[in-house]
Design a protein around this nucleic acid. Sequence first.
DNA 1: TGAAATTAGTTGCATGTGCAACTAGATTAT
DNA 2: ATAATCTAGTTGCACATGCAACTAATTTCA
Lengths: 149, 149
Amino acid sequence: MTTDAPFQLDGFLAFRLARAASEVSQRLSKAYAGFDLDVPQWRVLATIADRAPVTAQDIVASTRTHKSTISRAVRKLTERGWIERVRSNEDGRAWALQFTSKGEARFEELLPLVRGFEREMERELGREALLALQAGLDGLETVLDVGWS
Amino acid sequence: MTTDAPFQLDGFLAFRLARAASEVSQRLSKAYAGFDLDVPQWRVLATIADRAPVTAQDIVASTRTHKSTISRAVRKLTERGWIERVRSNEDGRAWALQFTSKGEARFEELLPLVRGFEREMERELGREALLALQAGLDGLETVLDVGWS
DNA sequence: TGAAATTAGTTGCATGTGCAACTAGATTAT
DNA sequence: ATAATCTAGTTGCACATGCAACTAATTTCA
């Protein structure tokens, strides 16, 4: 480059976020390798675990994942017998999603692994960096209006 | 869920990072819409701008993007006449990548838009959250060993 | 009420990605 | 020197994703 300071990809927030997110996500996926879950499926399960019964639309809204992606994740989990769908009483277009007993059992095997990963990452980060990261994400979520459902 | 505290996807670092990164990245892409660039192409350009001549392997290492993805981004940019490839003198397998004059001109149109986006995001975040986010990312990059090339 | 607009969810299509296998050049070790 | 190993980059393949168009159910409003 000639004009201005040389552009430093490494100092660029969007890039740092993307790289960190992809690295963390890749490592996390190793924690639940063997369960044959992809990220959207994991998000569906976690949302159901948090506040079943939910609709696909609820999951779309709270995870900001595209509705076609959620739709396909729901289909796979239904086919695998982890979750079941019941037509919503309030809205005949929507489906209420909840675990089957098999799905709940699998999720409870899975959860400690994921929690372990999170705790280990927090431990490695150390208290100070963890608090900074959380505060930074709080601010970012406010700016992006991507927050607490 | 029955055992343990309910799982809160919203409090989970890997998820918060992924969601924030994808949202920021999507907004940024609007800043350079019209240049018809995808993320890998942007990374190639930014790395070349920062320290040309570079090889594809340099870009792979510093951006942590898969080599096939970088290979295809390099091909597209070459076909579009933004960059050119010259066989490296030191290593006959590698190509030295650099801007064409057209590519350099385009990048210099592009750069202010991207810088503007970054500044605007930093302004909206505010000094305190920005510093926190940067400190958090510093820590995370150290833990992930994904740092300063 | 009933027509128009909205919303939940699905699916075909085009595109992007990672993986693994491959080519060709470089390096290492005997 | 030369065989074995390693590395840079490319490409076929399988798969995941976003978009847009679609169906069906709901809401709005005149």
